[in-house]
């Protein structure tokens, strides 16, 4: 599967993506000439310090907002607006509180004017352990259940690309691990291309084929790390030395980038940067 993917054109290409926000206090360069490719069936994580433009980059990929310059290509075609091939999972579960779970999952189909594939949705609901909860309202569900419902909603219309914007950031550590396992399990089945923003390096390592580290604002692609561990990954892998080392390297890159900025500002010498893999 993966070898086939490398010979094909990338599923998602970001080329020199630059985004400037015109704010009241002047122009803000959020991301600066970001380029990256995502192969079909790949899971790619984007990590980086707060405010480095990760969300801006992801929203550009989803077509929710445009770029100041550069472009995003899906299967070789430029993305100019929301695309039916792309599913989005947001920071919060983002369920509509006035709709019960079934109506929430129906929401994309109401907007698109298409018919939901009930068998597929029931299968997804079963997989995430939400069968029989269709009549419940979001406020009656726990945070983890809400985020699982959001995952089902995003996958309900079988997108070929799933973009996740810090999807599990609001969950506790245990629920988060559980959700990570769930995402991998679904991915093993569907081979959906996934781009994931996260603050958790562990989460990035557990899920990704590649991890992209972004620099502080303006966001640029600072480095790319391959994650070589075999799938399905287990929690045991997560306590190996390899994972520990990779975590530290990425952590030092993120922290180091920030520290060197502070040093530059204060005039002190920059700290030694860890070697990149």
């Amino acid at each position: 599967m993966m070898s086939a993917a490398t010979t094909r054109a990338p599923k998602l290409q970001v080329r020199n993506a630059t985004k400037i926000y015109n704010t009241r206090s002047g122009d803000l360069l959020a991301i600066d000439r970001c380029s990256l490719d995502v192969q079909a069936g790949e899971i790619v994580s984007i990590v980086g310090p707060s405010g480095c433009g990760k969300t801006t980059l992801l929203w550009s990929m989803s077509g929710l907002h445009g770029l100041t310059s550069g472009n995003v290509l899906l299967d070789g075609r430029a993305i100019t607006g929301p695309n039916p091939e792309i599913g989005m999972v947001f920071q919060e579960a983002n369920l509509l509180p006035w709709r019960n779970l079934a109506a929430n999952i129906n929401f994309p189909f109401e907007i698109k004017g298409t018919r939901p594939d009930r068998i597929w949705i029931d299968e997804l609901l079963g997989r995430v352990g939400l069968e029989g909860f269709g009549g419940r309202f979001p406020r009656e569900l726990s945070g983890g259940m809400q985020q699982r419902a959001a995952l089902v909603r995003a996958l309900s219309f079988k997108p070929s690309v799933l973009l996740m914007d810090e999807p599990f950031g609001a969950l506790d550590a245990f629920t988060r691990e559980e959700m990570n396992g769930l995402v991998e399990e679904i991915w093993l089945d569907t081979q959906t291309t996934i781009v994931l923003i996260t603050h958790s390096i562990e989460e990035a390592i557990f899920l990704s084929d590649r991890i992209i580290v972004m620099s502080p604002r303006p966001g640029r692609v600072a480095s790319v790390h391959e994650v070589p561990f075999a799938r399905p990954r287990t929690l045991e892998i997560m306590s190996t030395k390899e994972v520990f080392d990779l975590t530290n390297i990425i952590k030092m890159e993120i922290v180091g980038e920030q520290q060197s900025r502070y040093r530059q500002v204060s005039g002190a010498e920059a700290p030694a940067r860890p070697a990149r893999t």
Binding site: S62, G63, L64, P82, P84, M88, N94, L96, F107
Partner: peptide, 12 residues
């Protein structure tokens, strides 16, 4: 904004 972005992501 989140809910409007959600609807827009489906092309609303």
């Amino acid at each position: 904004r989140g809910k409007i972005a959600l609807a827009r992501s489906y092309g609303a």
